[in-house]
């Protein structure tokens, strides 16, 4: 990577590439074929190449809808649990169940508290998610599934308030707003830590792995996929889509 970039930089510096670029530019936009434009191409990385145009504030506002844990990005607005319940029943429950329990195989949105160490951990925004902002951001951008960005900010505040209530994090009379958003903490926030594989799994860096007689006894089969029998039947062939 760095090597090829270096090569490119050298090529540019000694002027091999510049004429080729100049030619391409000539074909597309002859009027820009000024010596000044040409010299921009031989400038070192970091210099302006004059491609692209300034993003207008309205354009940035239209696309920049992400929300961070500290609340950065939240639009003004509010909504309470009761309003959220109504919206949820109408626009979410068909997939996620009336109480967020999940219909069929659609995602479960509530419950699972205390299950993370069990054989069947249930990871919901109540039991698992570290930050409330994730649910606001995700729901506002992509839910309901197949009709994303159809909720207003107020509706999103309300639905998130309802989900908090379903997860026993707030009471029924709770109203969520831009103002009180950052004060709501989720119970599992402290349980996340940064990737530590290079220390926790240091033992996997071994210079000379065993090559001969590495096990005292012949290996025994302890489990078989066949027993579970969940492999798709490839004899029937794939579904034609």
């Amino acid at each position: 990577m760095s090597k090829s970039r270096k090569t490119a930089a050298i090529a540019l510096a000694i002027g091999i590439v510049a004429p080729v670029l100049g030619l391409a530019q000539q074909q597309r936009a002859p009027s820009q074929m000024t010596p000044a434009a040409k010299s921009e191409h031989v400038a070192p990385a970091g210099a302006q190449i004059n491609l692209g145009r300034p993003a207008l504030p309205q354009e940035i506002a239209a696309w920049d809808i992400d929300v961070r844990p500290d609340g950065l990005g939240l639009p003004p607005g509010k909504g309470n649990v009761k309003q959220g319940e109504e919206i949820f029943l109408e626009r979410c429950a068909a997939c996620h169940g009336e109480f967020g329990e999940g219909a069929g195989r659609w995602p479960v949105l509530a419950g699972g508290a205390g299950s993370l160490k069990s054989d069947n951990p249930e990871k919901t925004l109540g039991s698992f998610w570290p930050y409330l902002s994730t649910s606001w951001d995700y729901i506002y951008r992509s839910m309901p599934f197949g009709n994303g960005q159809s909720l207003t900010p107020d509706e999103t505040y309300a639905v998130v308030a309802y989900l908090l209530n379903l997860n026993d994090i707030v009471k029924e009379d709770f109203e969520l707003s831009k103002e009180n958003f950052a004060s709501v903490k989720l119970p599992n926030e402290g349980a996340f830590y940064d990737d530590d594989r290079e220390t926790a799994e240091k033992a996997f860096w071994k210079k000379n792995p065993c090559m001969e007689n590495c096990k005292p006894e012949p290996a025994k089969v302890t489990g078989r996929a066949r027993v579970i029998d969940v492999t798709p039947d490839s004899k029937t062939g794939p579904r034609v889509e």
Partner: peptide
């Protein structure tokens, strides 16, 4: 957060 974090046996999770 919800996805692509690695839940460990002790109930804590690796992220990133």
């Amino acid at each position: 957060t919800s996805k692509y974090t690695d839940l460990m046996a002790d109930g804590r999770s690796r992220r990133f």
